[in-house]
C-alpha cells in the first residue's frame, strides 16, 4: 500500500457468492449414474480405436474424437489403488471430517482410474497396489457417491 494511503474509510462487508445450479449429467452420464444407483454396476465406455476403457464414461473419446456413446462395457466393482493422498485440512466442500484418504482406483477392466474415498483403513496403512472394493451407498445422491467409499479387500 502506498504510504499516503488513507484507510479511514475502508472496511469489509461479509457476504457470499451463492448461485443455484441445475447440472445435467448428459445422456451418457445419466445411464452411468442410473446403472450405478439401481443395479450397483459400474459402467465404462470402450474406445476400440484407442484400445481403452474409460471410466467415468463419456460421449466422445478425447484422443481420437470418436463417438463412444453406444460403446458400453461393464467394469469391476473391485480394483487397485494406483495413487492416493491424505487430506488433512478441513473445509466445507469436503465429504468427511479430516483426515480422510482420497485414492485413485483403477477398477478391474478399466484403463483410467477414478478418484474416490478410501475408508475402513488407517491412512498410514494405505499402500499403492492394494486391492479395494466398492461399498455402495444406502441413500442415493445420483452422483459418483452412490458408491459411498472403497474399502480394502483380498486380491
Amino acid at each position: 500500500m502506498p504510504s499516503d494511503f488513507d484507510t479511514s474509510d475502508c472496511y469489509t462487508i461479509p457476504g457470499k457468492l451463492a448461485l443455484p445450479y441445475t447440472y445435467f449429467a448428459g445422456r451418457v452420464g445419466s445411464r452411468f449414474i442410473t446403472t450405478l444407483r439401481d443395479r450397483h454396476k459400474i459402467m465404462g465406455v470402450r474406445c476400440d480405436h484407442c484400445d481403452m476403457v474409460l471410466v467415468p464414461p463419456r460421449q466422445t473419446c478425447e484422443r481420437c474424437l470418436r463417438d463412444l456413446s453406444d460403446q458400453w462395457c461393464e467394469v469391476g466393482t473391485r480394483g487397485e489403488v494406483v495413487n492416493y493422498t491424505v487430506v488433512r485440512y478441513p473445509d466445507r466442500h469436503q465429504p468427511r471430517p479430516v483426515p480422510f484418504v482420497l485414492a485413485m482406483i483403477r477398477l478391474e477392466g478399466a484403463d483410467t482410474p477414478i478418484v474416490h474415498l478410501l475408508e475402513e483403513i488407517a491412512p498410514e496403512q494405505v499402500v499403492i497396489g492394494m486391492a479395494v472394493e466398492a461399498v455402495f451407498a444406502v441413500k442415493t445422491t445420483a452422483t459418483i457417491r452412490d458408491i459411498d467409499h472403497f474399502k480394502p479387500c483380498d486380491s
Partner: peptide
C-alpha cells in the same frame, strides 16, 4: 433413459472490501 440432473447451490463465503471510495459512500 432417465435424464439425471443435480440441483445444487454453490456457495462461497466472501469478505468484500469497500476500498476508500465505496467505503466513504457506504
Amino acid at each position: 433413459v432417465e435424464l439425471v440432473v443435480l440441483k445444487q447451490t454453490i456457495s462461497v463465503g466472501q469478505n468484500f472490501a469497500t476500498g476508500p471510495v465505496m467505503g466513504r459512500f457506504l
